[in-house]
Amino acid sequence: MSNLDGTRRSIILSETVNGLTPVLLLFSVFLTFRGHNAPGGGFAGGLVMAAAIILRYLGSGPAGIRSLRIDPIMLMGIGLALAIATGTSALLSGKGFLESTIWKLHPPLIGEMKIVSSSVFDIGVHILVVGVVMAILVAFVEADDEVARSRPAVKRPASDRSNDSDRSNEDSQR
């Protein structure tokens, strides 16, 4: 069952993860914004961020996930809503659904800056993917806790089960 309850974790892994997490998070954001016209995008970025969270879970156990204090289902909702709002806002302003708008800004020092409305869509996807992966992780952690609490019988091999005899009969007939 869970060997990730914080008692048997590896120091090397948790220290590596501690160093790696900020880099991964930064990289995930980079991937998301790069996605407009280069390999990357919200899904890839979201997966990298989710991978960072999973690594943290492996490094420091369920406590690391719970300490985030974010409801993953909320993340899914926010991400989905953001992505849909981007598509629909184009519709409301009289354009085609999901049509993207480009703004060009000239902030001082940086030079020209191109902002595309579809990057909001990408951010939505990013949040959604992180939410989904976290929801799966939280579900597993909770199920693990449940299993650990109830301490079910030792894992039964398939041959112990009652209906196995007739199945092997059938198999031999095939």
Binding site: V133, I136, F140, P157
Partner: peptide, 18 residues
């Protein structure tokens, strides 16, 4: 990922994933 979670659920219910 959905199938993996189903396999996990199946394992928590009856101890295997057949």
């Amino acid at each position: 990922s959905f199938l993996l979670s189903m396999a996990y659920r199946s394992w928590t219910i009856d101890g295997n994933d057949e």
